[in-house]
């Protein structure tokens, strides 16, 4: 079974050593996911696999057989940029732009985790349905994505703008019920 990347099917590599990141970049020429460290320390390679954020440098491409991979290139739709992409621009959530695709994909995965009720180490009472995706929660949950230019404030502001509105555990649970 092939792998699906941004809605398109792609062949899995013959060499089992090929990481998902190298498959995306070198075979599919999808250079959005970045290789910052190739050892899971910086988060620049973050993509979504079946909706969950993963470090594509630590994921073998063959592990993704039959799964759906979404990269930053797949976020913009017919109506233009994804709201989070727009918010990153508006809040200047990047400077050099190298960590940005990872930050954006990670934020989407993070917001989905929050909506599923996954607590973070600073969530005080995760039985409380009213827990909010505060800037502090965002900082904690996004700390696996390094930024060296120092765009942290803008990144948090962009995520807060989009997901403080959309992402509310109470709402999403009611919607799921």
């Amino acid at each position: 079974m092939p792998i699906t990347v941004n809605g398109n099917e792609a062949e899995l590599p013959h060499d089992p050593r090929v990481s998902l990141l190298d498959l995306l970049r070198e075979d599919l020429h999808l250079f959005g996911a970045k290789k910052g460290c190739n050892q899971g320390a910086c988060g620049a390679c973050t993509v979504l696999v079946d909706g969950q954020r993963v470090l594509s440098c630590l994921t073998l491409a063959v592990q993704c057989e039959g799964r759906h991979v979404m990269t930053v290139e797949g976020l913009a739709g017919d109506n233009g940029l994804h709201p989070l992409q727009k918010a990153f621009i508006e809040h200047d959530g990047f400077q050099c732009g190298f960590c940005t695709p990872g930050q954006i994909c990670s934020a989407l995965g993070m917001a989905a985790e929050f909506d599923r009720g996954v607590p973070s180490v600073i969530t005080e009472d995760f039985d409380d349905d009213g827990v909010a995706l505060t800037p502090e929660e965002i900082r904690e949950r996004m700390s696996g994505n390094l930024c060296r230019c120092g765009a942290h404030n803008g990144i948090v502001a962009a995520i807060a703008e989009v997901h403080a509105i959309q992402g509310d555990r109470t709402d999403s649970r009611e919607a799921a019920a």
């Binding site: 250079f31 930053v72 290139e73």
Partner: peptide, 19 residues
């Protein structure tokens, strides 16, 4: 003014040296 290369960078379409 928002940075003019913003749309490229948020889509992963800015071409870096290894790309």
């Amino acid at each position: 003014v928002s940075r003019i290369d913003g749309p490229l960078k948020v889509q992963g379409k800015a071409t870096f040296a290894a790309e």
